[in-house]
């Protein structure tokens, strides 16, 4: 313990805030890639900048005002909503049912589980191509299969008919996301204590009653998670539509969603001339969508969580 080798005492600042050094490097990335561009985007959304050149002027909230009466925005949002509702129903019925079946630990359970979750890890681009092939009128499998089982009248030009194109988007999204609902519900089911079911059985409940009265209420955290996840996923959908029906949301905007609309407005679709690109307007739509989605998410979580407590 000689005086010469005594270490320097650390400063009070480093004692109190020292751990924040660990945050700094990540924060710089976050700042540069997320926060600053977001602030920049907000600034841009109040101009009429096209995205190219220096020709711009400040227009205040005019872009936002315009969105309120911009028909394509509502049309796209409506399509998102249709996809959301349809996927939601699919997840909470078929997905839940498959999870229940898997929870009974059938033979080859591991196999089913692995297979049914597989599409989740596939890119939506790959998924889109798989189903483009399947649904192709010339070389696809779907039409001949429908004919084979006597439903030939359903066969058709799936992706170019307005009535079916959106259904196809839903169908493909369902295919890609089914694994989520199965795994989330399955882990929820596995967390239901065995004693609870046995107690209900002692009380004279039959299998169906046990499921609906005892097990199902225990699944509400899974229900909440899945609903919010589906909401975010379906309102951000872009890749599937882009690959299956193109940036225009063909046919005749029948599958146009917010993702493609904003993309097209801000960056131009293939058949748009650059004169029609309105970058600032597109950014305004994206920001408005972010705020509305955040609000709805927050509301959804609040409503569903309060239900969980009651349950």
């Amino acid at each position: 313990m000689t005086q010469a080798t005594l270490p320097k005492p650390p400063s009070q600042f480093s004692l109190r805030y020292g751990h924040l050094w660990f945050v700094l490097p990540g924060f710089l990335f976050f700042l540069a890639v997320m926060l600053l561009p977001l602030a920049f985007a907000f600034g841009v959304s109040m101009t009429n900048w096209s995205g190219l050149g220096n020709d711009l002027s400040f227009v205040g909230l005019a872009n936002y005002a315009e969105i309120l009466t911009y028909y394509p925005f509502y049309r796209a949002a409506f399509h998102n909503a249709v996809i959301f509702i349809a996927i939601l129903i699919f997840q909470h019925t078929i997905g839940l049912y498959l999870a229940v079946l898997l929870n009974e630990k059938p033979r080859f359970m591991q196999f089913y589980r692995t297979v049914l979750f597989l599409p989740v890890i596939m890119s939506l681009v790959a998924t889109g191509f798989v189903w483009t092939l399947m649904l192709s009128p010339n070389i696809g499998l779907v039409n001949p299969m429908l004919e084979a089982i006597g439903l030939g009248f359903l066969a058709g030009q799936w992706l170019s008919q307005p009535g079916t194109a959106l259904a196809v988007i839903v169908f493909v999204t369902a295919w890609n996301s089914m694994g989520w609902s199965i795994i989330i519900y399955l882990s929820g089911l596995q967390n239901v204590p065995e004693e609870l079911k046995q107690a209900a059985a002692m009380d004279g409940a039959n299998t169906r009653q046990i499921f609906w009265r005892v097990v199902f209420p225990q699944l509400s955290p899974a229900f909440t998670a899945l609903t919010v996840l589906t909401f975010i996923g379906t309102f951000r959908t872009f890749d599937v539509v882009y690959v299956l029906t193109g940036p225009l949301g063909a046919p005749n905007f029948g599958t146009d969603v917010l993702g493609t609309l904003i993309y097209r407005t801000a960056f131009g679709g293939s058949s748009f001339s650059s004169a029609e690109i309105r970058f600032a307007f597109g950014v305004a739509m994206a920001l408005l969508m972010m705020v509305v989605m955040a609000a709805i998410c927050w509301g959804l979580i609040r409503i569903l969580r309060s239900r969980e407590i009651e349950g």
Partner: peptide
């Protein structure tokens, strides 16, 4: 929650 659409051009 940040939409990629909004920040991609500034980026």
């Amino acid at each position: 929650l940040v939409p990629v659409h909004a920040i991609i051009l500034p980026l």
